[in-house]
Design a protein around this nucleic acid. Structure first.
Lengths: 125, 125
DNA sequence: GGTATTCTACTACATTTGTAGAAGTTGTCA
DNA sequence: TGACAACTTCTACAAATGTAGTAGAATACC
């Protein structure tokens, strides 16, 4: 289940806290985003349609909660990126991340640290 | 410059060998893709429009070559994914790749190896 | 030179995505 | 009980995307 750009915005707030009302989501979206209330409703309707969120009525008001998990969404997005841009494999993607010269020294340093930690963990298992 | 799914398909063949004609691209697209010749022309026109490829005439026939490099395209795609799904940072993305339990043992093993090699290289610099 | 082939340019058209207005419904408070 | 506020559902609509047809121009082959 692939999400569109705007759907990610909505899901990102929803994953942070749910169940949530459309109004609540509206309030918790990043300030740069100035969507009309109905825009959010539309997106929530589409997401419900797709089965990525579940809607339940509490009186007149709808409560929404994610069905698709953040992890699942990330997996799909990464897989799709890998397919498109890295010949389907995560290896080359990983390579690219580690070697892209456009990363600043400190960004690279950070990645390496993360990786070293995760690598240790990986070995332990 | 963000590419759409279909544009990636075209660019992927074009990066492999260029300059190329629309016909040539048509022939080198993965067999599962069965686009009409004009579909490819349309995509090339859009890509030219966007400035991702350059078109030059050789007699009656157009030759195409990439302006956008694969690296640039990858960078944009990764950055956009990071923004959408990982709060803008590559670190969490990297984490996710290394830890996602949905990867098979061997996939994970492979990633770790890559990381170990790259990490060494990274340190040397 | 005439006919088949191959290109190109232009147009088309359904679907998806981004964004929102309008109008009806319900809850609430004076 | 009436008016306002907050919700909801429906509808809208332009731009982007996926996919291709048509017709005319250039080329090539006999």
């Amino acid at each position: 289940m692939k999400l569109t750009d705007t759907e990610w915005q909505v899901m990102n707030v929803l994953w942070e806290r749910y169940p949530a009302t459309a109004r609540g989501i509206s309030e918790r979206l990043p300030k740069e985003i100035n969507w009309a209330y109905t825009t959010i409703k539309t997106l929530l309707a589409r997401l419900t349609e797709k089965g990525a969120v579940k809607e339940s009525k509490k009186g007149n008001t709808s409560l929404y909660e994610p069905v698709l998990t953040r992890q699942q969404a990330r997996r799909v997005a990464l897989k799709s990126l890998a397919n498109q841009a890295f010949d389907g494999a995560f290896g080359p993607l990983m390579h690219f991340l580690l070697e892209d010269q456009k990363l600043s020294k400190s960004q690279r340093q950070q990645l390496l640290e993360i990786v070293q930690n995760d690598t240790k963990k990986g070995k332990q298992k």
